[in-house]
Design a protein around this nucleic acid. Structure first.
Length: 558
RNA sequence: CAGAACAUAGCUCAGCUUGGUAGAGCGCUCGGUUCGGGACCGAGAGGCCGAGAGUUCAAAUCUCUUUGUUCUGACCA
């Protein structure tokens, strides 16, 4: 690409409405442009990067034996009604009607259609295994788009689906995809960690996430360097450091705690440690009023709760629901409460804790497990700093991650819903075992920029940079410089090395800064010494340039 | 969905409190001087002040409504 006659621009100032480093840099460097919240244009440079990411994934998908297809984005709503996910996705699914008033959706994910497509091929166990994949635009009406390309309403995803006759087959298909993912992300130069995750809306047997390590990540990853255990915060079993609660139980005591509506207030007022308090969470679980009691310094884990109670939805309870009990918001406690009560395992081990008294302005101190009544007990909180590895018992470590890929062993959930069956050796009908595997392309781009940039701009890893090299002409009025730069550009281009020629009539400083901002891995400067056959060669992240002959430059780039 | 902030030139913003001819820097055009890390001088082009209603002799400025964007939370493969 020769810049003089190309669609190319950079911005000199930070984008006002970008809240992440990667979003700002990609906008500033002219890779993407926001059209509305969570919807972006892919400009020429941006599309080239996305295509590189796509090509790498495609290569590894094909190597793993998957076949590429393309499903529509516009889909009749009935497919999602049949699988029950119209409800599951709820308001996150884009709904529309065609001119005949038929309900349609913009596909948020494609399990249903792939299962439907698989029906045409699967009749007998002899028709499996196989694996189909696509690169498709997904639409999700996210409650809050943010962080540039990290959380958007429209994005391209690579999604793959495997079909097997039994669980053993699924295990093998899953392993192949898992390996293909590792190879893909390794090739892109991403620093990532694989964690166990919640199966969420997808359902199924197992979910693992590929998380790019980045401080702005929306997920918290928990891992253990000693045994290799790692999981998303949302699923890890809580193993507390031992010997926390050894005191002898005392007699409970009612104390006045005026205007202490939060557990922080109470702890401060009574000069207690938060870890010696029990807090209440007043929730609406599928329409039923349920109060949860957990240690004051922990957080309720909603997906663990849903699993424990076999429920599908959990929200904070509204005043009307709370009024069905004697619970007093701010002073709710597990002693003498007349509604469904769920306690965390930890609470039953605590000694002499503080909790609400179900009277406005009063708490108990020195309460003990023997004082309380409850309906259900379980592990219902998030792992936190100080907890131990559930496998080897050593202290856990924490980091933030951006979920760039996800693999699911779906089992037979969708094949059952979609009636996807086959005849086995004994001519008996069996459900097909499915797996699904996704990678968000834009999110992967964003994660790479989050991991690889400096104060001047993006630093693309070589394999996904939009171009490998950029050639700067210092003075476009100097005919020798122009000739040498153009010859170099032609030589490189014709030997398949993608490069940019900055032949704009700009001052050198502008060219240096733009070249750093857009993050091309290698920079060749054609300047004063070009007439003597000497060019400057600099890697984007190197300190100083080196002087090389034209031949050497070509060799270094090959 | 709840709370809050913002919306003025292509970009980043001032002006609003106290109503009275639409502003700056960058970018853009033309001329000149420059030319190895976002140069300088001069002359220009460019805005229905997000949209709608109201108050007023007069509204970018005050009031209400509405739309969009962003933030905090909720939510979220």
């Amino acid at each position: 690409m020769k810049l003089k006659n190309a669609y190319f621009y950079t911005l000199r100032e930070d984008a006002r409405d970008e809240d992440s480093v990667s979003g700002n840099l990609l906008v500033k460097a002219g890779y993407i442009k926001k059209t509305s919240a969570g919807v972006y244009m892919m400009l020429p440079l941006g599309l080239r990067v996305q295509n590189k990411v796509e090509d790498i994934i495609r290569k590894h998908m094909n190597e793993a034996g998957a076949q590429e297809v393309k499903m529509p984005a516009l889909i009749a709503a009935e497919y999602y009604e049949d699988s029950g996910r119209m409800k599951g996705f709820g308001p996150s699914i884009f709904k529309l009607k065609d001119r005949n008033n038929k309900d349609m959706v913009l596909g948020p994910t494609h399990e249903e259609l792939f299962a439907y497509a698989a029906k045409s091929h699967i009749h007998s166990y002899k028709n499996m295994p196989f694996n189909l994949y696509q690169f498709q635009t997904k639409y999700r009406d996210e409650p809050r788009a943010r962080f540039g390309l990290v959380r958007v309403k429209e994005f391209v995803m690579k999604d793959a689906y495997s079909f097997d006759a039994d669980e053993k087959g699924l295990d093998e298909s899953y392993r192949k995809m898992f390996e293909a993912y590792k190879k893909s992300f390794d090739e892109m130069g991403i620093n990532y960690r694989i964690v166990k995750a919640d199966t969420g809306v997808m359902g199924g047997l197992l979910s693992e996430e590929f998380q790019a390590i980045a401080p702005l990540g929306e997920d918290t990853l928990v891992y253990c360097d000693d045994c290799g255990y790692s999981s998303n915060l949302e699923v890890g079993k809580v193993v507390r450091a031992s010997k926390t609660y050894t005191e002898e139980p005392k007699e409970k005591n009612l104390v006045e705690t005026p205007h202490c509506e939060t557990i922080e207030d109470v702890a401060k007022y009574l000069k207690m440690d938060m870890k010696d308090t029990v807090k209440a969470l007043l929730m609406n679980v599928d329409g039923e009023f349920v109060v949860f009691f957990i240690n004051g310094e922990r957080e309720l884990n909603e997906s663990k709760v849903l699993k424990l109670l076999s429920a599908s939805e959990i929200n904070f309870a509204d005043d009307e629901l709370i009024a069905t009990s004697n619970a007093v918001p701010g002073y709710c406690g597990p002693i003498g409460l007349n509604c469904k009560v769920v306690v965390d395992e930890e609470v039953l081990e605590m000694r002499n804790f503080c909790c609400g008294a179900n009277q406005k302005g009063y708490h108990y101190i020195n309460a003990n497990p023997g004082d309380i009544s409850y309906d259900v007990v379980g592990d219902i909180t998030n792992t936190k700093d100080g907890d131990l590895c559930p496998v080897c018992g050593r202290p856990l470590k924490f980091t933030k991650g951006i979920e760039i890929g996800n693999t699911f062993k779906l089992g037979t959930k969708y094949s059952k819903a979609m009636g996807l069956q086959y005849a086995d050796v004994e001519n008996k009908l069996q459900d097909v075992w499915m797996g699904s595997y996704g990678i968000g392309l834009g999110r992967t781009m964003a994660a790479i920029v989050e991991q690889s940039h400096d104060d001047k701009g993006i630093i693309w890893p070589e394999n996904i940079a939009p171009y490998k090299a950029i050639i700067l002409i210092m003075s476009t009025k100097d005919e020798t410089q122009c000739r040498i730069a153009n010859e170099l550009y032609d030589t490189l281009t014709s030997s398949g090395i993608e490069c940019i020629l900055d032949d704009r009539d700009e001052r050198p400083g502008v060219k240096f800064n733009d070249s750093d901002l857009i993050g091309i891995p290698y920079r060749v400067t054609v300047g004063k010494k070009a007439a003597d056959g000497i060019l400057e060669f600099k890697k984007r992240d190197a300190q100083d340039p080196e002087e090389l002959s034209i031949e050497e430059v070509i060799n270094r780039l090959k």
